[in-house]
Every structure is written in structure tokens, then in C-alpha cells.
Nucleic acid binder design. Sequence first.
DNA 1: ATAGGGTTAG
Length: 595
Amino acid sequence: MTLQLPQALQLVILVIQSCKAFKQLQQIQTQIITNGLDHQNHLATSHFLSKCSELKQVIYTCKVFDQIPNRRITSLWNAMSKGYLQNDLNNEVVLLFRKMMRENVKPNCYTLPVVLKACGKFLALRECEGVHCVAVKSGFISNTYTGTTLIELYSGKGRVECAFRVFTEMVLRNVIAWTAMIQAYVANGDMVLARRLFNLAPERDVVMWNRMVSAYIECGDMMEAKRLFDVMPGKDLMSWNTLLHGYANNGDLEGCERLFEQMQERNVFSWNGLIGAYSQNERYIEVLDAFKRMLRDTDVQPNDATLVNVLTACARLGALDLGKWVHVYAESNGYKQNVYVCNGLIDLYAKCGVVESAVHVFRSMDNKDLISWNTIINGLAVHGHGADALSLFNEMKNNGEKLDGITFIGILCACSHMGLVDDGLSYFHSMTNEYSIEPRIEHYGCMVDLLARAGLLEQAVEFIKKMPIAADCVIWTSLLAASRIHKKIKFAELSLQKLIELDPKNPANYVMLSNIYGEARKWEDLARLKVAIRDTGSKKQPGCSSIATDDGIVEFYSFDERHSKTEEIYSALKGLMKLLRLSGYVPDLMELNTQ
DNA sequence: ATAGGGTTAG
């Protein structure tokens, strides 16, 4: 015979569980109190605490918990720790558990899995072992949930042998425990043992199969992943999506497309897999096409990951109108405060040159992360708002935000654009001195750019010589660009020689060098170079740009004549050149030829 | 009431 809860209590629990907002929950709390149900029944209270934490009202949850007169009820403590865990307050879980022990509240079988999970995230191995001991002494070690969580804990600490020991000592090993142990081997790089356990498992469900497939994907073995996928029984949508993302992450765009078309059923993850694959391969037009197809042909709702990929594509293509549409869509579909989406929007507006909108989105964010700051600082810096970039950097420091190497790329870029050589140098040195951030080749590149743009080409070359890393194409290209601006043929020549050394197959460099030699009338050098170009036998890949028009995204090359309105386009360009000349602009041959 | 599987930004 099952014991029926009183109807009123059942109702209260149901109402609590269906709560969507904190305000509603507070109204229910008033009801509970006026109906005399408060604290009389711990079931209602623990449901209340759980919901309160779920709605991220941790402080309020604590207040309620502290006011409960008789707290020696395990389920209330369990509800509290679960709430802390949900809000990633792992140290609080551990503290609460210690308090629980001190106050002599007996843990039950639900207690330790939660505590152990928090321990794994927060405590050092030695302290975790202490909690493991508590589990043994209290007898809860024989609980399958506790065992499984311990396997995960030791796996996360890199101690597979401890995980395996827990696994072997478990009283009851179900398919979830087996999966956790397999996952422990996978996470610690032992595919052989993972596979052995998989073959040995008395029962394999779809999760275990999927986990195994994605393990092979993670270690780059798409062949074996596909083989397992083909033989696995009872594939679900997630199995298909796992393989789809495998192709995407391994750069196999065709494999990804083929699988996608084969799928009988597709959800948002499937679409994101395809769109993400296009995005990673810089096929931004295809990103937008797939997105439009998704909206037009399916009922699948885009989510934050979809929107982020689409925004990236818009930013790269300059498709500002579609980007704005995504902005509106995001705001009316609950992504207004989504950090990923907002970061994508900042990048979109910055890349499209709409700096005010970028700043507006940034300011509207309640929770900014490192990437938000980096994106706005970088966006401002490259669009000639160096001063604003630097002042945001100060704000960032004053707020006690974390900085990383990317932050400094933005800052050095700002200094470079503003010609602040000394500031740039001092920021550069502060990286190692103050922030212990190791400068990478990009930072050295920024410094070369900073010095060279300021006309200090000798210093730039000296800087390159002193670098602990060898200069790459990017660095010599920026020196070349500055040499052109400052008309220092000697440095342009040096840069191009280095560029040819680094990339002898790239004909663009020979073309530029021949232009310089031609200009400097170094005919002998030019003749020698022409032989060199012939020997490499490669053709220059034309650079390609794109623009969003009423007819969609149009790609175009230099001297392109494929467009139906070619004549109108070129006559418009002629008009623009005329305007430029009138305003005193003199086209520089050296600059033109080397583009 | 508790444990295991897939995507996203500079």
C-alpha cells in the first residue's frame, strides 16, 4: 500500500515545481505560511529550497534555510547542497557538508553523490580522499550513485587507477557505472583499456555507444568512429549528431554535408553541426544559406550557438542587415542577455564599423566575460578609436577583470594606430612584468607594426633581431607595409627577401619585389627575379572580397567583370576616383601595384 | 530527489 500525501501538500509541491520566476515563488511562499504548511512539512520546504536555488536566488535560499527552526532533517541539507552545486558554489557544498557533520545530521544515500561532485571540482586530491573515507565509514560507498560519482572524481584528478579500484569494489555495477569507467579511461588517454571495457560490458545502451563513438572522434580516429556508428544498434538522434560534429571538427566538410543529408530527423544540434562546419572552414556564404534554409524549411528554432555562428559569418561577410535581423531575433527570443550572442553582436558591429552599436551592446550586458572585453577593445582599436580602447582597458583593470594575451593584442593595436610608441612599449613590457603573460608571436608582430608605422624602421628591425621567436610572414608583411608608407625601399626589399625565404612559392612577393626593383631602376635584380618567378612556376591566387547587396552576398575580384552591372560599377568607381583626386588624393603607384 | 552522451564568441 502506498501512502498518499495530503492533497493540499501535493498541490503545493506541484505549484512550486511549475514555478518559472522568483516572484511567483515568493507568492507561493506567502500562501504556504498562511496555510500553516511552512516548516511543518519538510517535503514542501525542500522543494521550495530547490526551486529557489534553481531560480538562482542563492542568498534568499540561505536566508530561508537559516530561519528553519528544526533543521536536523537530511533532505533539507541535501536540497541546499544541490542548489549550491547548480550555482557552481562548490566550496559552499563542502562547507555545508562539514557543518552537517559537526551538527550531527546524518547523511543519506542522496547526500554523498552531490558532495563528491562538488569536491571533485573544488578540492585537492588529498581532501577528496578524506570525503571518500567518510563514504566508506558511513556505508554509502556501496551505493551505485556514490560509486559512479567517485569514479568521475578520480578520473577528473587524473587517477584512473583509483577510479578503477572504486569500480572493481562496487557492489552493483550498472551500465552507467560501466560508462563512467570507460569515460575515465578515455579522458585519461587510454583508448585501449576503454575499448576493452566496452567489449566486456554486460550491457551496452545508446549512451555508452555514443560515448565510445565520440571518444574515437576526440582522438581523431574517424574511421573507427564511423565503423562503430555503422554497427551500433538503436541509434538515436544524438548518435547522428555526434558523428556529424566529428566530421565537422575533423575538417571533413563533404562528410558532414553527406551525413546531414542522410539524416531522417534533425534538431537544432544537427543544424548547428552543419553550420559550424561551414563556419570553421570559413565558408560564410554557406553558413548563411544553411541558416536561411533552416528558417524556411523547418520548424527547428535556432539557439544561441546557431546565432553565434551566423553572426560570425555576417561579421566576416559584412552582411550587416542580416546581422541586425539576428539582433532583433535574439532580443525577442530570450537571448538578450546571452553572453555568447552578445559577444557575437559586439564583433559584428565592430567588424562592420558600427562602433556605437558595438558599444551599446557591450554596455547593455549584465554579465560580461573576458571575451566581451577583448572583443570591444579590439573592435575599437582597429576602427581608429584607440583612445576609447585604452580607456576601456583601464576600466577593465579597475573592475578587477582578468586579462589575457588577446587583451594585449587589442591594446598594442590601439597604441600602434595612435602612434603611441612609448606607451606601447610599456604595455608590452607590463605583460611579462605585471601580468605574467608570455608574449606570443602576435604580440611581437604588434610591436614591429607599432615601431614601423611610427617610421622607426631601424628600431623595428632591431626588435625583430632580438625576438626569441623567428619572425613570420605576418611580421615581415607589416614591416613591408610600413616601408611603403614611409617610402623606405631598403626595408621593403629586406621584408620581401625574408617573405620569399619563408614562402618561396607565393608569387605575390615576387611581383611586389619586381615592382620595387622596377621603380628603383634595379634592372639587373629584376631580370634575376623574373627567372626565379618562372622557376617556382606558381600562379598568384587572386584576393577575393565580398559585399552584401540587395541580391545577396556578392564576391568579387580585382578587375572582375562577371557581374551583370559591370559597366555601372566601374563608372561609379571612376566617379569615386575623380572625387578622390579632387580632394587632393594622389594614387601611389608603389602602393597600387603591391596590393 | 541523486550518477553517464552532442554545438557556440575575441
